[in-house]
Design a binder for these strands. Sequence first.
DNA 1: AAACGAATCTGGCACTCAGT
DNA 2: ACTGAGTGCCAGATTCGTTT
Length: 336
Amino acid sequence: MATKQSKRRQAYPRIESEDKFHELLDDNKLAPHIMRISTEKLPETVLFAIQSANKKSSREMIAASIKSAQAANSNGDSDIYVKVGKDLFDYFRDYSSDPASRAFQLRGRHCREIAREQFSLKALQKERMNSGWRYQYLAIECARATQRFFSVSDLGLKEADFNATISILGVSKRLGIYVSVKNRENTIGGPDWPKAIEKLEDDAISDKNMPDYYLCVFAFAMQRGERRFKRTRKKVLLSPNVELWGSDYFWPFFTNYSYEEIMQAVLQVLISNPAAESITPDVPARVIDVFEQHCQDTGLIDSNGCFNDPLKLVEFFCRKPQSSRKRKASAKQRVK
DNA sequence: AAACGAATCTGGCACTCAGT
DNA sequence: ACTGAGTGCCAGATTCGTTT
């Protein structure tokens, strides 16, 4: 690693003042906004972003499958319930972190109640993933509408979520901005930062269409703040070409709307289209039936449907190696 | 020394893809 | 079609360093 040459400092316009903005991109020397999506058209774009993100979420696929299955045949024996119910059961087995504690907590609980809890847990994680995607779509669509940028790429080509090129005033050169959108800064774990920064920069360098200069940006869609560089605790700069943009800078730069204006717009859309948000359906009873059936087949519950035998539960949790543990074990080996 | 913001640690989880 | 490994996304808790 030490032999790897460090990336060349890009010569795009930088702020020269000796304050906390020193060396950050000088946006006064970039093409300005020309316009922005009208307030009338913004809701439409927001809705598009929400729907695009939903389409990407597997839960939407599940919801859609369930709906179509209901429409297609009413005997209720469709495969989709069996699959979702089995998935839920597998999740219950594989992600109950501590077999002993979990078995202890489950004593006397009804399995149908547990099924609902597990379903909510799964849904929560997907919610998080979903809002990340939502704001990526939204930023791209709005950026295109501003006419500020020479080009704005589609979503998710490589490391960068998207990139945009912008003209530098007075020198007939262009800057390519490679953006990785995160919900918040802690989305990337501390030890992962150097690697993430390096990969994003490698991605920019290897882009055949990269213009005169590149700038890499980690943008936080829902975390207030302006701009800065990433440094270690010892103040070591990780890269001079990678900036961290808080939502107060990110949204105006790409959309010509403030962070709060964007969020207010999203809220308005959700209020007038409640269906867009509630894409997690209530747990279908059939799914819970399948879950219960699996519990029964595995001998985990009594005749009332309650978990009555902690010993058996521990055996159940231990029988199959937990995938998360295997992952961690192999991860450790890789480091060595 | 308390308060604050940044850096770091920890570990759950989704998704893709290769091998079967 | 299934399964498991690999990879990366994500949030909560904790620690560190600076400021007031």
